[in-house]
């Protein structure tokens, strides 16, 4: 599988995700510069954490206008696998690929800490290697990660099983319904605030994030493979 890690100026977890995909999991991995108008045949696109274009207006507000996002939208509509982590999640909600939005943390501060995250749905290509209700140890690091969505959308998301991760043992940022990560209806686009790439090696005292990437890499016969 060929992985593309998007680089906006201001991205800062790009090389961390790149390292996990290429060095830890031996996948062919390339960077996709924000001004590019092609995905270079990638099967899986990751929008990493950071502060795209400085995020001075609103996280993700500028990134959604970049040329690469046009490509990613087309790719996603055709069933291509897209993962947004932290700022990447913010970009996905801003650009309409995922419902809801991410507001300033309840306590008004940036929060960096380990959290406990529960897997709500394992019937997605990102979570097939987890057990249902499994509790994962994953770090968060964000100032604006409080998930919010209107009530109607929320209930339809619940019906469609679009809520993939919830915080358990406390709600670090005040997210609605403890939501930590959601996917689209087709389940090929996932966004989450916790950082799976920061818990994919034993030396970092946590490997719970690894199976998220492995779930995707273990796919075969998915529509995305026909795209290439």
């Amino acid at each position: 599988m060929k992985v593309g890690v998007v680089q906006f100026p201001g991205s800062n977890c790009d090389s961390d995700v790149f390292y996990v995909c290429r060095e830890v999991l031996n996948q062919e991995t390339i960077y996709l510069w924000h001004e590019e108008k092609t995905l270079h045949g990638c099967d899986f696109v990751i929008l990493p954490g950071g502060f795209s274009y400085g995020d001075y207006l609103r996280p993700g507000a500028m990134a959604k206008l970049s040329p690469i996002l046009t490509e990613i939208k087309n790719f996603a509509f055709q069933g291509g696998m897209v993962l947004g982590i932290c700022n990447g999640f913010q970009v996905l909600t801003e650009s309409g690929l995922l419902p809801g939005s991410l507001l300033k943390n309840e306590n008004g501060r940036f929060i960096c800490q380990w959290t406990s995250v529960r897997v709500e749905n394992i019937k997605t290509p990102f979570t097939s290697l987890y057990r249902k209700w499994e509790s994962l140890k994953m770090p968060i690091a964000h100032g604006e990660g409080r998930y919010f969505v209107d009530k109607n959308t929320l209930s339809s998301m619940e019906q469609e099983e679009q809520i993939v991760f919830r915080y358990d043992l406390g709600n670090p940022n005040g997210s609605m319904d403890f939501i930590a990560g959601v996917c689209n209806q087709k389940k090929n686009v996932l966004g989450l605030m916790p950082h799976p790439e920061r818990c994919s090696e034993s030396v970092l005292k946590g490997e719970d994030g690894l199976r998220l990437f492995q779930s995707v890499f273990s796919l075969s016969g998915h529509p995305l493979s026909r795209l290439a």
Partner: peptide
């Protein structure tokens, strides 16, 4: 204080703030 700092980015932090010394792995 340090919960407001991103002490994990670059994924090298082996011993985080709060102990006697901080430790980084070198990839």
């Amino acid at each position: 204080i340090w919960n407001q700092y991103d002490y994990m980015v670059q994924t090298n932090t082996v011993v985080p703030p709060g102990q006697d010394a901080a430790v980084l792995r070198i990839k």
